[in-house]
Simulated assay, not measured.
Amino acid sequence: MEDVKTKYRAGSVEWVDALRKYFVSVVEKQKPDFDLVFSIEVTNPPEELLRGDGRDTIGYVVSVQNGSIHVLDGPHHVSDAVMTTIDYDIWEPSLRQKSTEYRRWLAEAKPGHVKEGKWKSVGDIARVLPLAHMCNIIDDFYSEVTL
């Protein structure tokens, strides 16, 4: 029988909880030997995804330090973090794509979204590569768990 994953709405509390479980199960047992703070801030999310804490954005933070990985709900502006801010209507549909389709979409769509101000990045995105080499988050989580 095929492993059936529960699907959640992108950016929901349940989705972030599933993301946390995914990272811990896949990455932490590999004992990462690098430190990284990576944050996604998603602007203009549907109102029902807001957390009721006064913020008008949603997102998550992945923190890898001392061989452990933590995923926190909500974007966190931390110095020396790699941070992406992206509009929900761009981010959400991209999560359902498999990696080949996602890479093609990224190359074609990102420049226009950056020019429009709907996609901003801070920090050296290459710092995320060690984490990306430890898992295939696009195929194993985003496209499998996102409604």
Rank of each mutant, 00 (worst) to 15 (best):
K115D: 12
G59Q: 00
E41R: 10
Q65Y: 10
N136K: 06
A18G: 05
L36Y: 10
L95T: 10
C135G: 06
S121L: 06
G112R: 13
K29A: 05
S25H: 02
D89I: 03
G123N: 05
Y142A: 05
R127H: 00
A126G: 13
Y102H: 12
Y22Q: 09
L147Y: 03
Q65L: 09
E144W: 03
K29T: 05
G54H: 07
R9V: 15
L129A: 11
D89G: 12
E144V: 07
M1C: 13
R103Y: 14
V114M: 13
G52R: 02
V64T: 03
G117Q: 10
L147T: 00
I137Y: 09
S79F: 15
G54I: 02
C135L: 04
E2R: 15
R127S: 09
D56K: 14
T84F: 15
T43G: 12
R55S: 14
R104G: 13
P45K: 04
V42K: 13
L72A: 15
V62C: 14
L19T: 05
T57E: 08
G52M: 06
W15E: 01
E92Q: 12
M134I: 01
V26T: 06
H76L: 05
V27S: 08
R9D: 15
I86C: 15
S68W: 06
Q30K: 02
D140H: 11
S99G: 07
T43P: 04
T146N: 06
D140E: 07
Y102D: 08
V37I: 07
S79P: 14
S94M: 12
K7H: 00
G123Y: 04
P130M: 04
F23Q: 11
T57D: 13
G117D: 09
A10S: 12
A132M: 11
D124F: 06
G11N: 01
I58A: 11
R9T: 14
Y60M: 06
D35M: 04
S79L: 03
M134V: 00
H77W: 12
S39M: 02
H133P: 00
R127P: 02
S25P: 02
D139R: 08
L106Y: 13
D87M: 15
T146Y: 00
A126H: 12
I58H: 04
V4N: 07
N136M: 11
D33I: 15
A18N: 07
G11E: 02
